[in-house]
Computed example of a mutant assay.
Amino acid sequence: MSTQRYYLSIADLAHARGENPAFSFQGVSAESFAQALQAALRKPTLWQQWSADQTDPDSIDPALGQTDPSATVSAKQADLHVDIEVVTSLSHTILKHRLALLAGHSWELHDVKPA
């Protein structure tokens, strides 16, 4: 898969939480969110914890656990919302899953471009 640049935003970072507190983002700053998402894309830790917590972990497609050691995430506070830029070779499906674990469905995708 080619490397893509994703442009996202979160309207209210203080309420951007995943459904399960064990996997959810717990920080308060744009920088701490960028660090958490970057770690979730680069390392398998979050995915491994989530998959181990599932009723039937063996039924989960292992491709969902792929990582990108070169992924980068930057985020900056802009008024009340946070603008996020992700550069990764991971699929949109994997990025969406990691975002959902960390921030629920409180994020919005604005654009995707080749990196």
Rank of each mutant, 00 (worst) to 15 (best):
V87E: 12
S70K: 14
Y6V: 00
L80P: 00
A103K: 00
P62K: 10
T55K: 13
L41M: 11
S91N: 04
S24G: 03
I84Y: 01
L99A: 06
E31S: 07
T3M: 11
L64E: 14
L90N: 00
H110C: 04
A39P: 10
L64R: 10
I60F: 14
A16L: 04
D56N: 14
H92P: 02
A16Q: 02
D68H: 07
A100L: 12
R5V: 13
Q4N: 10
E19D: 14
H110Q: 07
L80V: 07
V28C: 11
L95P: 02
G104W: 03
A52D: 15
N20G: 01
A14W: 00
K76C: 11
D61T: 10
L13R: 04
A22F: 11
P44R: 08
S9F: 07
A30C: 09
L8Q: 00
L109R: 01
V112Q: 10
D56P: 01
W50Y: 12
W107A: 02
P21K: 02
R5S: 13
V112A: 02
Q38L: 07
A63E: 15
S2T: 07
P44T: 05
Q54D: 06
P69V: 14
L101M: 06
S91I: 05
R42N: 15
S74P: 04
D12I: 03
A63S: 14
E108K: 12
P21N: 03
K76A: 13
S24A: 14
D61V: 08
E85W: 04
A71S: 11
Y7A: 13
A11R: 10
W47I: 05
P114M: 05
D61I: 13
A78E: 15
T55R: 13
W47Q: 09
S59H: 06
A103E: 02
R17D: 06
L46M: 07
A30G: 07
S2I: 09
